[in-house]
Design a protein around this nucleic acid. Structure first.
Length: 207
DNA sequence: ACGATGATAATCT
DNA sequence: GATTATCATCGTT
């Protein structure tokens, strides 16, 4: 099942989530940009310094939703990955709204066009109506659903966005996105992408 | 199109 | 008291 896929390490799961669909009620988003965060071995991870009340969900089993509040006003969403206890997850950075655009527009009044509705991790949670209350819910059975996609033919990998210190460097190229998609977040898009690489998956592109 | 900056508060040290 | 897995706005090219 999908849970088996999520039980793999986050660095493996992340590119597989490109093209997958996350849905909450009438709004559905096809993921175009994600980032992997490992636990104790990843200086960029919230779990790097061990378990705290905030990151406790990351230490639970795969397939749960880990939400957190940061910068005083933003909610971001992660898919918790296994193996259990590793506290790894995949941050949902951006996607394209493929269903429920009217609802998403009403929530994201500052959005210029539909490509901006979920272009960025905090924008994505607003467009989907995901709040901190959804943290810890099961993505297979809860109000927020994650559905596997058909995969993407090719993706790019590079340093993570917004991660300070060594964890944001070329040694951790765990940001994955669909090349050429205009719903990929523009934030720091033009920082030198050292260590960036292109990967061909051999999968068929979604119709 | 791009860079700088203020907003704003939970979390951790 | 410092830091933060960000966004919108406003300034300059």
């Amino acid at each position: 099942m999908f849970e088996d896929l999520l039980a793999r390490p986050a660095v493996e799961v992340a590119p597989l989530l490109l093209g997958a669909v996350i849905r909450h009620g009438s709004v559905a988003v096809r993921l175009t940009e994600v980032e992997a965060y490992l636990g104790a071995e990843d200086p960029g991870s919230h779990a790097f310094r061990g378990q705290t009340p905030r990151n406790a969900v990351m230490f639970s089993g795969p397939g749960r939703l880990y939400t957190y509040f940061s910068y005083g006003m933003h909610v971001c969403a992660n898919v918790v990955c296994g193996p259990e206890g590793t506290a790894s997850g995949v941050l949902l950075r951006a996607g394209r709204v493929i269903d429920g655009a009217a609802t998403a527009r009403a929530r994201r009044t500052t959005s210029k066009g539909d490509r901006d509705l979920a272009r960025g991790p905090a924008r994505l949670t607003v467009a989907l109506g995901i709040t901190l209350d959804h943290g810890g819910t099961d993505l297979g059975h809860g109000p927020v659903h994650l559905e596997p996609g058909d995969g993407v033919a090719e993706y790019l990998a590079g340093p993570r966005t917004g991660v300070s210190g060594v964890g944001g460097g070329a040694d951790y190229p765990w940001r994955f996105w669909i090349p050429g998609d205009d719903s990929v977040s523009a934030y720091r898009r033009h920082t030198p992408a050292r260590g960036a690489r292109s990967v061909t998956t051999g999968r068929r592109p979604p119709s």
